[in-house]
């Protein structure tokens, strides 16, 4: 078996080129993991990553700090009548159609808070799961949803909030 100096140089070059491409390709993920912004990957093998549930106060804190994106998983008509101030509409029913544009605008490191019509509504959890599958890392679900937020008297907007 012949391992010449040339072969060793070739091997080093192959590893260097491939690693560089990998590092550049995943630079956002690496920066996020270096700064601790990404949650440590689940230690349980093959465990399904799930959106983390957030309570009203935690969502209000994020809202006040202006961190992350708030997504409304309900349909557009319901969104138009009233939604959390500054929330962006992302109806679960239009997931496939809206994802490409969303991907272009929102980096995968961005924390996303998703809500719908409260505890009886599962669209926010479903949207969260699909966004995780689409590669987003920090997904929270505000389980109390729009009703809890509105009843707490926090900022809302829409035609008849």
């Amino acid at each position: 078996m012949l391992i010449t100096r040339r072969v060793i140089i070739e091997m080093a070059l192959i590893v260097a080129i491939a690693s560089t491409v990998g590092l550049l390709w995943n630079r956002q993920l690496l920066v996020a993991s270096w700064s601790g912004a990404v949650q440590p990957p689940a230690l349980t093998p093959g465990a399904l990553r799930l959106p983390l549930p957030l309570g009203l106060m935690q969502v209000k804190e994020l809202f006040d700090r202006g961190e992350g994106y708030i997504l409304d998983a309900r349909d557009i008509a319901t969104f138009a009548t009233g939604h959390l101030k500054g929330a962006r509409s992302f109806p679960l029913g239009e997931f496939e159609a809206r994802l490409p544009e969303f991907r272009k605008q929102v980096p995968k490191t961005m924390p996303l808070v998703i809500y719908c019509n409260g505890y009886g509504c599962h669209d926010s959890m479903e949207l969260g799961k699909r966004l995780i599958a689409a590669g987003y890392w920090e997904i929270f679900v505000f389980e109390g949803g729009y009703p809890e937020w509105r009843d707490a008297g926090y900022p809302v907007e829409g035609s008849k909030p």
Binding site: I14, G22, W25, L29, V38
Partner: peptide, 14 residues
Amino acid sequence: YLVATTLPWVELLC
């Protein structure tokens, strides 16, 4: 993360 982002590319190129 470093391994996860580089090793698959080495695998792919090889």
